[in-house]
Nucleic acid binder design. Structure first.
Lengths: 219, 219, 219, 219
DNA sequence: CATGAATGAGCGTTCATTCAT
DNA sequence: GATGAATGAACGCTCATTCAT
């Protein structure tokens, strides 16, 4: 996710020994592709190794076991994603602008890196291992970020304050996640958007959440 | 799901030979509990049998294999759920009332049968077999139902018609699903509601979607 | 094999209680068909019951277990066959006539009751349980019968006496068995014979064994 | 079967990577012993592994499954046997000499490698998979070889031409197979022969088939 | 670093057999 | 007698993980 817009460079030291780090990264990317294709349980360590073009024993030089691969993907990718999110939510701008940016971030990420998103959303958030407190907390950080945007918007008088920001942030994140999910599964086809900056879906979601569905208003 | 509000009775013949049907149902309920606890992959057939209090060989008298158990749960429970949903969406009432009823249905179902909901939301949608067209279509039916409510509301002039009903229905369903998910995972604690008829969360979600978040409106 | 030519009636008492005996026989015949089709190991008790049109639990009222079914088939059918064989070998006639009759018996039996022959030749003689002394002895009786024919022919000056009758009887029985086997497997197609009394194959085999292959003789 | 008389060396490359090939061969030989002892169905994969002195999981590194082990034994051993057979049948010599050599080959093979012969004759020809066309054809090759010897003998005027060579070849092969079978099962005890080159049984069989049993001839 | 042979716990599934009705 | 639900031992196979080279 380093190449997502606005992603800060990884902190020095996260990658020690250029070569080792490169190979490790190579395995992770192979694992993401395989997890996205077959799911965590359906992916064999040998599949990952084959996808990475290495002997499967070598995987164990870089990762303790299969689960650590998944956890590493989550840690690195999710945290990178969170950093971008927090850059947006803690930056300048109105709540509306931030909600817009968030929606763009999420939908754009899926367009750019569908495998990453599939793994983060399907394999990790829905995996049984996800119940681990550390991962719960990591996801909580996303909700907290969005909640914070909403709460600040309320305090600034920009957003109405009679709606529980917790409920609203869950709704917003859930809405975005389902946009992605429906694309992944092909349940519903949203219009293809060649360019995220001109993303009608993003604008529709934001306007939906800001303006509401009720008719008879200044739109 | 026969006991969810408004669930129509199962058609006669759905259960052949009362005793056999009862035992089959017994195994399904045990499977739901085990799947909810350990996940589909983490559940052993012997766990299901133990939970049902029978020899595990007997499971194979009632189901071809482990996967058929999951598929049966999906078929029966999801379709029962859909029937209730469609009763609501195709019945009388304004779009607002129907959205309210839908939210109540979803959140109430989780409160009443958390295991069922966990399995339907987590285990089936996650399972690799979920990609099968039949199951995709079954989920699509839910979206179609909600979309229909929105479209009718727009045509009746009740809802604004400048928001794509497809996007809105994805958002609505996703919002509700995430309410549940966050409860399941404990990511965020919504207030405990002792009684679904007085469900502040339901009202918050509906008002969020109808009225929007933007301030400075007649609320 | 009661209906093979010359088969003596079963001794009274072999079938007790007409009804019970009939059902038992019915199961045996079903078992023969199933064993012939799928082999002993590939045949399930439930297959046999289904073929017989009864509940599979009932099989155990008539037979101790699956193996006893096979053993019973062997005992009854093989002994019936042996009785016919011994009728021939111990009856009047030259050795040549008896060899001819034996060949006809074997090849005709396969034409009439291929399933019986398949089971006797493939499933029993080749089953690992066949090593049991009792069954070895039963098969030995066949060899002994043929050996006796040959030995008597030698003593009568009808057959040359410089060939070990043991070797010759093995060769003769083996030749006949392979005729059958090649038919069953379709390895080699012998000409279809509509009528056993005019069986060129039988005559060829007999002439082969009596006259030998060497050329330059009065034929 | 490489060590049977006249067996040609395996083509280079048949064994890739000396070590891997050796271990594979080691498993095959263990499997032959176990199959010969318990039969294919009675042999557990773990028995084979134990006999080979390896972990049973390793069996699956070398063979797809249990059946592939049997098929491999058949493919390799039977084809090696056929090569020797065809060397004899297509080489120089009279038909009588070739029939003699064939009998020696078969009976000697059993003396040398009883387990191989047991598996080839009992486990493979008996197995349900044996019906597969490929295996039928492989067995057909043996018959064809013998048939060819007989036909050539007839054309050369060495053998009488009024006996169908197909019938005669079935009889000859069947006779030899039954010699073996009776030895395996102990139905009949042929005299122990310390040395195949002086094999009275071989000479008896050949003289039986060439000279016939009828008395009163120049012998 | 790199390889892939080796290990063995674990699980799904089959099916002969028993037994309550 | 007749049924088929119930039992559970047995076994094939997978695959994460280790380790010698």
């Amino acid at each position: 996710m380093a190449d997502l817009p606005g992603a800060p460079p990884l902190p020095a030291g996260a990658v020690s020994s250029a070569a080792r780090g490169a190979k490790r990264e190579h395995i992770l990317e192979a694992a993401i592709r395989v997890f996205a294709l077959h799911g965590y349980h359906g992916a064999r360590v040998s599949d990952i190794a084959a996808e990475a073009g290495i002997a499967y024993g070598l995987v164990y030089h870089y990762f303790k076991n299969k689960e650590e691969i998944l956890r590493t993907i989550f840690d690195e990718r999710w945290n990178a994603f969170l950093r971008v999110v927090e850059q947006v939510t803690q930056g300048p701008g109105t709540a509306a602008e931030k909600l817009h940016a968030l929606a763009g971030l999420v939908l754009y990420a899926y367009r750019r890196r569908p495998d990453w998103v599939k793994v983060l959303v399907f394999e990790i958030r829905r995996s049984s291992r996800f119940s681990e407190p550390e991962q719960i907390r990591a996801v909580g950080r996303l909700f907290r970020s969005v909640e914070c945007v909403l709460r600040n918007g309320q305090e600034a008088g920009e957003l109405r304050d009679d709606i529980d920001p917790q409920v609203a942030c869950l709704a917003y994140v859930g809405a975005l996640e389902t946009m992605i999910t429906s694309q992944v599964l092909g349940v519903m086809q949203l219009p293809e958007e060649p360019d995220a900056s001109d993303d009608r879906t993003v604008r529709a979601v934001v306007e939906l959440f800001l303006g509401g569905l009720r008719a008879g208003r200044a739109q």
